[in-house]
Nucleic acid binder design. Structure first.
Length: 307
DNA sequence: ACACGTAGAGAACTGGT
DNA sequence: ACCAGCACTCTACGTGT
């Protein structure tokens, strides 16, 4: 997290107190919690430096950086479509047909086997889904790398590319704490979230990938913003979650459920009341679960609230 | 409209065999 | 590899304010 004071003011409350969160690719206001921009430019380094300690201004750049998002990592050669030679003058008709054949074979050689073709399709899909979800490029890159591993381990065959790309993206999202839910990812590819969840678990197990256990805290900024809750309520929500985690009330429970319940309680404490229905719609947690969770929180934590 | 509580189903994890 | 038991959430419903 870095605080950026040079840019815009919050359109909601005119505060200049804005925070940019690299992981989420979001800028939000610290006063009112408004999310200002959701798909910002990923600021992370895209090329390496060649100085001794790896820092410093000497950023040598030879060619484009390699990327997991192009199936051959962007390292292949393209033959220009123009029938011009290096000096720009036209190529004779004799050589033109040869060039045409070369282009054709170059294209075929680039995507030579079924795995390559699968990868080409999957990588395009990953970029599409990530952009729909406003996920930063770092997440897309990581998803691509996970998908490559899955393909190498033969986990894709017999499963839908859509679902497997979604699963890879969800793993990356969990690792980078970007606060998207399985439902979010599944919705883009119009798949059942249970399928995506299943693929997600299979992938994690077979590739021995570990993701940090999701904390309810991850979703606070996003859900509070979507519910139009101010900073006071958001901070109160965080306090409640901290207490719940310290009291070990969160293990084995759905993190969104805890977040939902904490927001519900926080609303009554600060006067920014949202109905269970409203919270349910934003968090995708049923009202029943919100009730069960907030009852549990209230009975185990000492809080002064009248609901 | 909102909140509450319950019953049954289903998915996922664990531990046993 | 299969199965039973477990805690949790969801759907669907009736009831209460």
């Amino acid at each position: 997290m870095s605080v950026d004071t040079t840019l815009v003011k919050c359109p909601e409350c005119n505060s200049r107190n804005l925070t940019y969160d690299e992981n989420r690719g979001e800028r939000h206001c610290n006063e009112c919690g408004m999310v200002l921009e959701e798909s910002m430019i990923d600021p992370s380094a895209e090329w390496r430096t060649f100085t001794q300690d790896g820092s410093g201004p000497d950023r040598s750049r030879v060619g484009a950086p390699t990327t997991n998002l192009i199936h051959d990592k962007g390292l292949s050669t393209d033959i220009d479509w123009q029938n011009k030679d290096f000096a720009g003058s036209a190529i004779s008709s004799k050589n033109r047909s040869q060039l045409h054949r070369m282009r054709k074979w170059q294209k075929r050689a680039r995507t030579k086997n079924s795995k390559d073709r699968n990868l080409v399709e999957a990588l395009a899909k990953i970029q599409h889904i990530c952009s729909k979800l406003n996920l930063p490029k770092t997440v897309a890159e990581r998803s691509a790398s996970i998908y490559r591993k899955a393909l190498a381990e033969d986990l894709i065959r017999g499963r839908s590319i859509d679902v497997m790309t979604a699963a890879a993206i969800f793993i990356a999202n969990q690792q980078m704490l970007t606060a998207r839910t399985v439902d979010d990812v599944a919705e883009v590819i119009k798949a059942n979230s249970k399928e995506v969840g299943r693929a997600y678990r299979v992938m994690k197990r077979k590739l021995r990938i570990r993701t940090p256990p999701p904390s309810p805290m991850t979703y606070v900024a996003r859900f509070c913003s979507e519910l139009g809750l101010n900073m006071e309520t958001e901070n109160t929500t965080r306090n409640i979650i901290t207490m719940a985690e310290n009291a070990e009330l969160t293990y084995g429970k759905s993190p969104c459920g805890i977040t939902a319940a904490a927001m519900y309680i926080a609303g009554y404490q600060t006067g920014q009341i949202r109905t269970q229905r409203e919270i349910s719609e934003v968090t995708n947690v049923t009202e029943v679960t919100i009730r069960n969770r907030y009852k549990g929180l209230l009975s185990h934590l000492e809080m002064d609230v009248d609901l």
